[in-house]
Design a protein around this nucleic acid. Structure first.
Lengths: 333, 333
DNA sequence: GTACTCGTCTAGAGCGCTCTAGTAGAGCGC
DNA sequence: GCGCTCTACTAGAGCGCTCTAGACGAGTAC
């Protein structure tokens, strides 16, 4: 920078002004400085800039590498952050890399806030994190923690899905739950409530699972094994999320069970996966773009006004009916 | 830091030494300083450290958000980088965010090197990037550019796949190519060569595609439409990658075509997707972990010895036979 | 005793920027 | 000619660390 200033015959301060695109330099000087900088191959140093500025204007995003819905969310985070003048840094949690490691990496790179996509850490850790910095949790409710929270109204979503199945004449509706996955407990609760409300308490059944394809495959195997022992298949399954629904669909297709003729399957998320199934997946749409935008805005607003208390945004999910759901076999028989 | 030093009754320099875990402080003082720091809630500032140190020991990774093979690679990058004492920062390219934007973000956060997963930028840009900093390209060969290159021997992989299909009696083998996708031209060439070598020039056919599920679905539709007009289906398809194979499988299943009875499908990558198909996908395995490790090592080695010229690593791919390939219909008929 | 070394610790420069306060000079009204 | 404002620019402190050079005392060798 000093070299540029010297060669262009101006002060370092002016070079700084020009590189920040601030007013206070004549057009003429501006061009000259930029030209000289280009010749020398000068590019401003981020770390020094950060240090001097005191602010990084960078948001960190923690996500789980293989979670497809997260990549949908990330697609929404970038443009909104850019619009608000923030940079985005990603840090993935993987099998060998815990969420807290991923978060610490972001923090040590001076992210001013962290957006956590479906975090699975201890509430105590999240609370501490939320007090140390600005944190936003997407999908995962953390009751007592000092973090913003963006999610969709899981209950409403499940209710719509259940109404849909019930209208199609389904009674034996099983739920594969999402285990400790974000939103799972709410979905599970809503499923139970819906079954009870319709007097189907005796049919109520929750198969433990999680938010992966494997758990869908697993549940499929279980159901098929039961069928082979003479128990009837459920006529419909409400899966914990799209990936789980997908795994289930795979297992069923493999075994020659026709969806939706023999069984209806409903997912949750409407991730881009949902379009890519042999039959389109009927699923509850969470608007990833909208959720991402809310998360970014929460973070930025709280960054810009630290008196703000953490808030909660609840978005309305919407059932999307595609090919994987149809009339119940008994009803049509 | 000054506060910690004052409260612990030592100099700032000593606090620095202790926080870097360097020798030169007594056990006693060390404990006292750490305790005080903890009380105050002090954590070292990354930007300042970076600035003073001159090195960030951080690797940047540019990837494409929805590319599943990339997430497999990322899983391998983290542990290897950690082993070598480097941090990792991720930056995704999406529809609205170009590769160069993603890379610039990494650079401005002081990454010392960038690892590009299947980059699709202009060779000229990559070359310039490779001269400006240490760059490693994974999967995408960039002939003249000053970058390291890690890939698997596409030719060998395709050859294995073709031998496998030919042994099963297939003759009408179509290739859906990966368009401009990384490795595509090599795979296409190897497919053509294999067909010619076996005197199947007349059956040679390449359907243009890319590395997404959509292109597989698209190709499937095309083939099915042709069948409906009286043209026979190919007996086997070699897809550009797993995602494409998956899309094709979806389209076929939907239309009632039985894989592998009516048609065999072979993918490429052996991403974690491959296990999750109704029938396991026969595919060419690229060892993501190994590729990731090579990429990280290339970057680090060149960072630590800048006299090093860019190198190339070629890994051997390996055909994995699963359920999506079987004897050719004609052969069994 | 002197001359070493060794372990522990400190002073202070410097990393490459930003930002506040301020200067110099031009233009303008009266 | 005076004071005023406005534009274009500069000096220099400071961001929070690291790192070099060196101080200080205790131990060891002769």
């Amino acid at each position: 920078m000093a070299d540029v200033a010297a060669k262009a015959g101006v002060s370092r301060a002016l070079v700084s002004i020009i590189f920040r695109g601030q007013p206070g330099a004549s057009q003429e000087t501006r061009e000259r400085v930029l030209r000289v900088a280009d010749e020398i191959g000068y590019r401003p140093d981020g770390a020094a800039r950060l240090l001097a500025r005191g602010r990084s204007r960078t948001l960190g995003v923690m996500f789980t590498v293989h979670q497809t819905f997260h990549t949908d969310l990330i697609e929404g985070i970038y443009p909104e952050a850019e619009r608000l003048g923030y940079d985005v840094l990603l840090s993935g949690a993987t099998k060998g890399r815990s969420e807290s490691q991923a978060v610490e990496a972001l923090l040590s790179h001076r992210c001013e806030a962290v957006i956590l996509l479906g975090p699975d850490s201890e509430p105590a850790y999240l609370d501490e994190l939320g007090r140390r910095t600005v944190a936003v949790s997407v999908s995962r409710r953390v009751p007592q923690a000092h973090v913003d929270f963006v999610h969709s109204a899981e209950g409403k979503g499940v209710r719509q899905a259940m109404e849909h199945l019930l209208e199609l004449g389904h009674r034996r509706i099983v739920h594969i739950d999402g285990g400790r996955g974000p939103g799972s407990s709410e979905r599970r609760r809503a499923y139970r409530a819906a079954m009870r409300r319709h007097g189907l308490e005796s049919e109520l059944r929750v198969i433990p699972g999680d938010h992966t394809e494997e758990s869908g495959i697993e549940a499929g195997r279980l159901l098929l094994a039961e069928r082979d022992q003479g128990h009837p298949l459920p006529t419909a399954v409400l899966a914990g999320n799209d990936r789980c629904a997908w795994g289930l669909l795979m297992a069923l297709t493999r075994a020659g069970v026709d969806v939706p003729r023999d069984m209806s399957v409903v997912g949750y998320d409407d991730s881009h996966l949902a379009h890519l199934m042999p039959i389109g997946l009927t699923t509850v749409r969470q608007d990833a773009i909208l959720m991402a935008e809310h998360a970014v805005r929460f973070a930025v607003e709280r960054l810009e006004n630290d008196a703000l208390e953490p808030r909660e945004a609840v978005l309305d999910p919407k059932l999307v009916v595609r090919g994987s759901s149809g009339p119940a076999p008994e009803a049509s028989a």
